[in-house]
Each structure stands twice: as C-alpha cells, then as structure tokens.
Design a binder for these strands. Structure first.
Lengths: 232, 232
DNA sequence: CTTTGTCAAGAGCAGTGCTCTCGTTCATGG
DNA sequence: CCATGAACGAGAGCACTGCTCTTGACAAAG
C-alpha cells in the first residue's frame, strides 16, 4: 500500500492547482493567469492539468468562489470583533475590512467587482450564494439600526419612480429587511458607495499621489452614507 | 499623381485601425481585443498593422483616450441641454448620461473604470487630462450649488482624520472648488456613488433580473448623495 | 533619374488553451 | 489473486495570440 492513496493524491493536487492559481492571479491578474504556467510550477506537463480542472474558466470560477469566501470571512470577522460597538460603527468596520481585503489582493477584488472577464460567465449556481454573503452581513447590520429606531423610515429623497419602488419592495421581501423600500434604496446607496469608493482606489482612479489616507476617505464616505440612513 | 497621397492613405488607415478596434473592443472586450483580427478585417497581413500602431498597448491607449472623450462629451452635452434647470438636477442629468453611456458600451466603460488591464499601464500624459473631464464637470456644477448657498459648508459627518483633511484641502486647492474640505469630502461621496452604482449595474453585480428600472435606481442614489451636500 | 524611405507581405519565434493518443500504474471486482 | 477497466502523466499537435525581422515593390524627394 503506497503512503498516499490515489484519491488522496488527487485531492492534494486539486488543492495545489488552486493554490498556485491564486498566487499567479495575485501577481499577474485574471487575464494573465496561464494554465500552462500553473501546470509548469506543479512539475507536470501542460496537458496533465486537464485531469484536475476542466479548463481555464473552471479555475477562474474556483478562484472566484474562493475569493468571495475570503472576503466575506474577513468582513464577518471584523464585524464580530467589534460586536460591542453600535450598528453604524460596525458598518464602518465592515466597509474598512472590505477595503483592506481589496487593497491587499487587488486582482482578486477585480475578479469579483471589476470588469467581468470577457467570454467567461460565472456559473450562477456556484457564485451567487458566496457573492451575497457580504451584502447579507451589511443588511443584517442595517436591520439592527432599523429595529433600534435609528434608521428613519423615510430618507431625504423620496423614491419617485414606480418601477423602482416595485424593485425595492421586491428586494425588501426577498431579503427580509425590516423597513420599507425607502430604507432599501438608502441601503443600496451604502452598497454603491462601498464598492465605488473601493474600486476607485484599488483601480487607481483617484490618481497616483493624490491621497495619503485612502482608508480614511472610504470610512468618511461610509459615514456620510450612514447619515442618509439616519436622516429624515 | 495618385488620387490619394501617401500621407492621406496613412491617416485613413490609422483612422480605420482605431475604428475597427473600437468595434472589436465593444464585442469582445479589452482582453479579447486581437490585433491580428483587426488587421485581418482591414485586409492586411498581420505584421502590417505595426506600421500604424506600436502594439496592442498603444491601440488600447488610443481607445482609452477616445472613450474618455466620448463619455465626457455625452455628459457635457446632457448637462448643456438642461442648462435651464437647477444645479442639483443637472448633476442627476450628468449622472444619468454617464450611466447611459456605460450601459451602451460596457467594454469601453470597463476599460475606463473597471479592472486595469494587467501589464498595461496607461501613459499618464495622454490619459489624465481626458480622464478628469467628467469630474471637472461635476465639480463645476457643485461650485454653482456652493455659490448659490445651497451646499452647506459642513455636512452631517465631520472630517475626522487629519491626513484626510489635508488630502481634501489639497484637492480643494487643486480644483478651485469654492467650499472647504468638507464639501470636497461629500463631492467624493457623489463620485463614488456614481461610479459604484454604474459599475454594479454594468458589471452585473445587482443580479440578472432583480432590477427592472436600473436607471431610476442610479438617479435615486444620486439624489440621496445630493441630499448630503445640501444637509447640515 | 537616382536615392531614400515607406509599405505590404511572409516567415518565424515564443507563448497560449485545448484535444487526442499512448503506454503505464493503480484499484477493484470476479 | 489476478485480470480488467479506470485513472494517470507524457507527448505531439492544432489553432490562435503578440511581435520581430527580412525581402522586394513602390512612391516621394533630391
């Protein structure tokens, strides 16, 4: 009996493919991720990797799911570590963790919230659930704010469009957010602010040397968006 | 004397390279843009295109500058067409035009505000100026609001971090925005909301069928951000 | 008219994703 | 316990990419 069974070896190699792939993704970006290069580093010939991964797209999907999970873990961990602080400060903590993860691994962040890789469609059944974990965490924090009476039922700008109202009400029903469509509209402001501010920084749109404290800027933007949730 | 001189032919081909490149970019995305495919469509052999374009990166730069210009033109045009409306509604008009351009040409939008193409660094001297046109337009509208006394000097969340305060004050000095660092901080909320909301929609992060009126959502988000600029 | 420089074409290099075949090795069912 | 079938790694090969270099034809300028 060999020390490592066939099934064990297979699992081990599958794990290493993803691990090397993640390192290459971090250094070369999604478009530069080469299946051949990953295979070379594993000491195999180029065709052998197809025994473990259906193709480049599947490796990208694995890395995508991985990244969603890591990001959500980082956010949830930060929120849990601040459990004694009020809901709105925990939203800022969550956003700061979101940004910190993105800054630490820009290529993975780009895979999640940047331009979709052309010709590659993430399979919904494997990516939707891990992709919504962060938003669920944020919504849970907002729910605390609603139940504490600190989130106003109506914000400073009414939801005018009737179709938008229907969209928001459907989202409220789907997510179980306590509070109406107006609260959901302001929650989406928070979400857009978080993703927008992070993307602007990580993708270099603020300019090279214009900001010395980008983290503080994002927190400020989040506090402003939170003020809208507390304002009449 | 031939009907078309050598210089004329050259300019014509240079123009057509960019034109075909833009079409390929729109259909295949930045990563799928193939210089060989463009050259084929022009009826030339693959190596001939290097007489007109230094390489793939330069074609991407040309398309990038082009896209920045088109986007800024679309925004400026929409703002000019609403010259009779108040400054804050013109901000919404500008944002809606921004989004409409992005939805109409997602690949170009991704080139501007999505993940940076790995290994490709946009040459600053050719991209910074066209890239800041949209932000300058928005800042001009905000300046109107400040001078009309409708933008409050201090918003609902103070700028706490001192380094952030210095960053914002430098930006105020560089852009000549009437109003202090606090106004600039809220202006960056607006900018992050616009880019974030547009990216979330264009990059498919809202989910496939969750929104029937995405344009209305972005306008709502912008109105909420504008409320922060008018709020104490 | 001659020289100079531009041009398109072609061959070629190194790299990519992916497919197929071919012996070998392992696991398991008779 | 051993034979059969599945899994495996290696290699060759196809079509594609960006890019370089050389070659011969042509136009523009002296």
């Amino acid at each position: 009996m060999p020390p490592t069974s066939r099934a064990e070896r297979r699992r081990d190699i599958e794990r290493r493919v993803v691990e090397v792939g993640r390192r290459h993704l971090a250094s070369d970006g999604a478009a530069g991720l080469s299946l051949r290069a990953v295979t070379r580093e594993l000491g195999m010939v180029s065709s052998a990797v197809y025994r473990y991964v259906a193709g480049r797209d599947e490796l990208l999907t694995l890395l995508l799911v991985d990244a969603y999970g890591e990001l959500a873990d980082a956010v949830d961990e930060a929120v849990a570590a601040a459990a004694d602080r009020p809901w709105d400060e925990r939203v800022v903590v969550a956003g700061a963790a979101f940004r910190a993860w993105a800054v630490a691994d820009p290529a993975s962040y780009a895979l999640l919230y940047g331009s979709p890789v052309p010709g590659y469609e993430a399979p919904a059944e494997r990516t939707v659930e891990p992709g919504t974990r962060v938003t669920l965490t944020l919504l849970r924090l907002l729910a605390e704010g609603v139940e504490a009476g600190e989130v106003t039922p109506a914000g400073p700008a009414p939801v005018g469009d009737t179709r938008l109202l229907a969209d928001l009400e459907r989202l409220v029903a789907e997510t179980g957010l306590p509070g109406g469509a107006d609260v959901m509209g302001r929650a989406l402001l928070l979400w857009a602010t978080l993703v927008g501010g992070t993307s602007l920084e990580v993708f270099g749109q603020y300019g090279r040397d214009t900001l010395t404290a980008p983290g503080a800027l994002l927190e400020h933007q989040l506090r402003l968006a939170l003020a809208v949730l507390r304002a009449p």
